[in-house]
Design a protein around this nucleic acid. Structure first.
Length: 252
DNA sequence: AAATGGGGCAACCGCGAATGT
DNA sequence: TACATTCGCGGTTGCCCCATT
């Protein structure tokens, strides 16, 4: 037996709610509570299905709903919670009093997702890093500036886990020297090579010009899981052409 | 002034989970 | 225990408004 329809289609209204319908729904729920949603519309004198009534109430008419634009703090909270919970909008909404899951979902799709996807240039990345370096400079006393930058990149992008998860015995020491925030640096590393073995050799021997310049003990970096992680490279190379070439070269 | 395209948002749809019988 | 019903969630749609051409 198939699933029972949520409501009889015949004679029931769909689409936007009128003020009169809103008033009836508010009036009924304020006096009797919603009880059984399926039975509610008939009792309230509404030509709607229960599902439609529930949605209208929970997303729009509930008295505790906060109207208006989201504050910066709320947006930051959504971003953080989304990173932790994924698309579990109701769980996110539960932590934002007065906001509905539907509203949060809409804000995510229309504003926040785009904001997070904005391409990050080497310049803006370096600006961000410099700001954090300034904010944390006391914490990094005694380290050279490159190590500081990398430490912060790792923290910001959650790459710290690689340091402990990598099977490479060298990874802890050398990851502190990589990556540079400069896209050109990595461009040189990867695209100065003609095939995957070249990259491997460049990384191990330091033959890539950029690597020669910084002389950082490249072989260890090649041994880390970061080197084999497409997400890591995607963060550096932003265009589809670059990613496509990279993917082919590194055989992801 | 009219046409068009895109963004924003409310509402709908379908599914799985929870609850009732 | 099995089946029916209801609820709630997340994905998607479609309408309205506004900016641009």
């Amino acid at each position: 037996m198939g699933r029972a329809p949520c409501c009889e289609k015949m004679g029931l209204k769909k689409g936007p709610w009128t003020k009169e319908e809103d008033h009836k729904l508010i009036e009924y729920i304020s006096q009797h509570g919603h009880g059984n949603w399926r039975a509610l519309p008939k009792k309230a004198g509404l030509l709607r299905c229960g599902k439609s009534c529930r949605l209208r109430w929970t997303n729009y008419l509930r008295p505790d709903i906060k109207r208006g634009n989201f504050t910066q703090e709320e947006e930051d909270t959504i971003i953080q919670l989304h990173q932790a919970l994924g698309n579990r909008w109701s769980a996110i909404a539960a932590r934002l009093p007065g906001r509905t899951d539907n509203e949060i979902k809409n804000v995510w799709h229309t504003h926040l997702k785009k904001r997070l996807k904005l391409p990050v240039t080497a310049e803006t990345k370096q600006e961000d890093i410099n700001i954090v370096v300034e904010e944390n400079k006391t914490e990094f006393d005694g380290q050279d500036s490159k190590s500081k930058s990398l430490e912060i990149i790792m923290q910001e992008q959650d790459y710290t886990t690689y340091q402990t998860q990598s099977s490479s015995p060298h990874s802890d020491a050398t990851l502190h020297n990589y990556p540079e925030s400069d896209q050109d640096f990595w461009f040189d590393v990867v695209f100065s090579s003609h095939d995957p073995s070249d990259i491997t050799n460049n990384c191990i021997t330091g033959d890539a010009p950029a690597l020669r310049e910084v002389d950082h003990g490249c072989g260890s970096f090649f041994n880390t899981s970061v080197f084999h992680d497409m997400d890591f490279w995607c963060d550096i190379f932003t265009t589809s052409e670059e990613k496509s070439s990279l993917s082919a070269l590194l055989q992801f």
